[in-house]
């Protein structure tokens, strides 16, 4: 097993090796224990400054990263594009370089454009962590999903995971497929044909349009959110109506009971209750949705800790 990450930025799952992922998980185990202590804070990153740059809305990921950073004792600055100079026409590289000139060592960035994190890593001198770039990747979400499966089932290798819903617009789906494959899981993508990307079959996954078959096949169902903001208005673009979507692809109590077996239910959030999943299932005994959120902090602490490990004191900005 490797004891150093094979990458200096976390831009996507693509660049991680299975050994890297295993290292992140082992480190996250340590942080899970830290998070259960009476004082949930360690001094590891106390001389590191991290900028959280969110050019797109986020609640869970931003809070999760911020908590992870604060529990590692890092200094944190937050930025969201709503009230910034990007609105005045400043370019991404200029914005980030301005922030870096104030001596920031690491950048956590969410951006609506695919490839924004890779672009940034080539043009600025700081460690970059991709917190979601458009429809491309969301690596920490995939890591925490796989970590949660590992925690719940004791392994990832050989587990059958169905990723259900709006695959086309989902960076979570792509990162999950890459991560699960690296760890030896089998993956099926399931959703309406209009929300299935053309490249799906090249990912080496099974593809299905039948929700019941997908659920019957899998051990774990990761139900994705219908991204209403990317559907062109009120969802008319990709399927006739939310009601029809819920009937064909929504996970409700009746559909779950018809399976006649237990499967693990996951959802990366935020949930459209009554559309892709009903409250009965989301809050039910098979759901590990809140465990995912809890594990998210530990996994992000591990990523920050391991990336900062290669950071020489005070040199990131020189």
């Amino acid at each position: 097993m490797s004891d150093v990450l094979g990458t200096t930025h976390l831009l996507g799952i693509d660049a991680l090796s299975p050994a890297d992922i295993e290292l992140i998980f082992r480190t996250a185990d340590g942080f899970k224990e830290v998070l259960s202590r009476p004082i949930r804070k360690v001094p590891s990153l106390r001389d590191v400054t991290i900028a959280n740059l969110f050019f797109e809305n986020s609640t869970r990921t931003r809070i999760s990263f911020e908590l992870a950073e604060k529990r590692l004792s890092a200094d944190v600055v937050n930025f969201s594009s709503g009230n910034s100079s990007t609105k005045k026409g400043e370019t991404l590289v200029d914005t980030v370089n301005n922030i870096l000139s104030m001596k920031v060592d690491m950048v956590v960035m969410r951006h609506p454009d695919p490839g924004a994190a890779v672009f940034l890593s080539r043009h600025v001198k700081a460690r970059i962590i991709n917190a979601g770039d458009g429809t491309h990747e969301h690596p920490t979400q995939a890591l925490l999903d796989a970590y949660s499966i590992r925690e719940k089932l004791g392994r990832v290798k050989g587990v059958k995971v169905a990723i259900v819903g709006d695959i086309l617009h989902s960076r979570v789906a792509l990162s999950n497929v890459l991560c699960l494959h690296k760890l030896g899981a089998e993956v099926m993508l399931c959703g309406p044909s209009t929300l299935m990307p053309k490249y799906a079959e090249h990912l080496g996954v099974r593809v299905s349009n039948n929700m019941d078959q997908a659920l019957q096949w899998c051990d774990v169902a990761n139900v994705l959110r219908i991204q209403l903001e990317r559907q062109g208005g009120d969802g008319i673009g990709f399927f006739p109506s939310l009601r029809e979507y819920a009937m064909l692809f929504g996970l409700d109590g009746d559909r779950y009971r018809r399976l006649g077996k237990e499967i693990v239910i996951m959802h990366p959030g935020p949930i459209n209750r009554g559309v892709e999943i009903t409250s009965e299932i989301a809050d039910g005994a098979s759901s590990i949705i809140l465990d995912q959120v809890e594990n998210g902090v530990a996994v992000r602490m591990a990523v920050l800790f391991l990336l900062a490990g290669g950071l020489e004191r005070g040199t990131a900005n020189k």
Partner: peptide, 26 residues
């Protein structure tokens, strides 16, 4: 386990891998 409390973790050639803490009381 003291891995996360070390003062030298960024000066070591390899990242320290945490051990297990088993301390379930205050």
């Amino acid at each position: 386990d003291i891995t996360f409390h070390r003062d030298d973790f960024r000066q070591r050639p390899v990242t320290a891998i945490p051990g297990t803490t088993a301390l379930d009381f205050s």
